[in-house]
C-alpha cells in the first residue's frame, strides 16, 4: 500500500515537473568528425545541461570519417549536424533539403600551407606546384582563390592526413587553421619553414560550421529546432567564458572515443576556432550566401539554388 502511494507520487511529480524526463524530446546531433574541440560548444551544452534546460534530451553522437553527417540527417539517425556552408549547398543540390538554423563559425579557417624551401613565398609561386587539396565542396574556396590569382597548381588529392605534405610529396597542402596547420607544427615543422595563405584574408572567407537540419524536421517542430540552436549557442558562450573547463570536457570525449590527439592540440583548436565564431550573432549574411552560391556555380558544383529565405530560418538571417 505504502509502495503504491510512493509510485503514485512519483508519477505525479513527473507529470507536473516542467523539465521532467517525460517532457524531454530526444534528438541526436552528429558532428562531422571525431570528437575534437571544433565541437566544444555542443559537448559543453550537453554536459552543462543546456539542452535539457530547453526541453531536449540531446545526444551528441560520435562522428568520424565513416559517419557522413548528411547521410545521418537523411536517414534520420540524427536530427542536427554542423556543416560547412558549401557542404550544405552541395547536399541541397544533391537533393537533401537542409536548412540553416544558426551560422556558428562565420569566418573561414581554411588555409594553404607551403614549404618555403620549395620556393613558395607568394601566391604566384604556387603556379605549377604540386598542391594537395580536399575534394568536392571543400575545394571550392581554394579553386576560387587559384582562379582569381591566375595560378594553376597541380592538384593532388588530400584525405585525412598531412603526411604527404610532411614527407614533401607535395609542395603545399590544404589545412584548417585550427587543425592540420597545428598538426604540421606538432610534427616538428617550425612556422618559419612555411608560407601560409589564409583564405579569409584572400577574399574567400566562406562561412563554416552552421547548425543544419532537414526541412521536414524543422517543419515538424520548429520550436525544438530553435531550442537546439539556442542551447548550442549557449554552449559556445560558456566555452568562451570557461575555456579550461571546456577543454576538460572535450578531452573527456576525446578519450572516450580513443582519438589519437593531445591536449595541446585541442587547446590550439579551441582557441583558434573561437576566433571565427560569433555566438552572439549567429547569422548567415545574405551577401555571403549569394557569393558562395555564385562561386560554387561557377565551379560547376551547383545546378539548383534556393532562395536565401528558404535556406535559413528567420533567426539565422541577417537584417533583410
Amino acid at each position: 500500500m505504502k509502495k503504491n502511494f510512493l509510485s503514485l507520487l512519483f508519477l505525479f511529480s513527473l507529470l507536473f515537473s516542467p523539465e521532467s524526463a517525460l517532457a524531454l524530446k530526444t534528438v541526436s546531433f552528429i558532428p562531422q568528425w571525431n570528437p575534437q574541440a571544433q565541437f566544444a560548444g555542443y559537448y559543453v551544452a550537453a554536459e552543462k545541461g543546456f539542452y535539457k534546460k530547453h526541453g531536449l534530451d540531446a545526444k551528441i553522437l560520435v562522428g568520424g570519417p565513416d559517419h557522413d553527417p548528411v547521410q545521418y540527417l537523411k536517414s534520420g539517425k540524427a536530427q542536427f549536424a554542423p556543416l560547412f556552408l558549401t557542404t550544405a549547398l552541395d547536399s541541397r543540390d544533391k537533393g537533401v533539403p537542409l536548412i540553416n538554423l544558426a551560422q556558428v563559425v562565420k569566418s573561414s579557417n581554411l588555409m594553404l600551407v607551403a614549404w618555403k624551401d620549395r620556393k613558395i613565398e607568394k601566391i604566384g609561386d604556387l603556379d605549377k606546384k604540386r598542391v594537395s587539396l580536399w575534394g568536392d565542396w571543400l575545394s571550392t574556396a581554394y579553386l576560387g582563390f587559384f582562379r582569381k590569382n591566375a595560378v594553376k597548381p597541380v592538384a593532388v588529392p588530400q584525405f585525412f592526413t598531412v603526411n604527404l605534405f610532411l614527407r614533401k610529396g607535395v609542395d603545399a597542402c590544404a589545412a584548417m587553421h585550427y587543425n592540420e596547420f597545428h598538426q604540421i607544427l606538432q610534427a616538428g615543422v617550425d612556422p618559419e619553414e612555411l608560407t601560409t595563405f589564409h583564405l579569409k584574408n584572400e577574399q574567400f572567407d566562406l562561412p563554416e560550421d552552421g547548425i543544419y537540419c532537414l526541412e521536414s524536421t524543422y517543419r515538424k517542430s520548429p520550436a525544438d529546432c530553435r531550442a537546439f540552436a539556442l542551447a548550442s549557442l549557449e554552449g559556445w558562450t560558456y566555452v568562451r567564458q570557461h575555456p579550461a573547463e571546456a577543454l576538460d570536457i572535450v578531452m573527456e570525449r576525446v578519450k572516450a572515443a580513443n582519438v589519437p590527439t593531445n591536449r595541446a592540440h585541442m587547446k590550439w583548436m579551441l582557441e583558434t576556432i573561437l576566433g571565427t565564431i560569433d555566438e552572439k550573432e549567429p547569422t548567415l549574411s545574405r551577401r555571403t550566401y549569394a557569393e558562395t552560391v555564385k562561386l560554387m556555380k561557377r565551379q560547376g558544383l551547383l545546378n539548383r539554388t534556393v532562395p536565401y529565405e528558404t535556406f535559413c530560418v528567420e533567426e539565422a538571417r541577417d537584417v533583410p
Binding site: 607544427l185 606538432q186 610534427a187 616538428g188 589519437p260 593531445n262 591536449r263 595541446a264 592540440h265
Partner: peptide, 8 residues
C-alpha cells in the same frame, strides 16, 4: 599515438 615530442 597521442602525444608527440612536440605536443609535450
Amino acid at each position: 599515438m597521442r602525444e608527440s615530442v612536440f605536443s609535450l
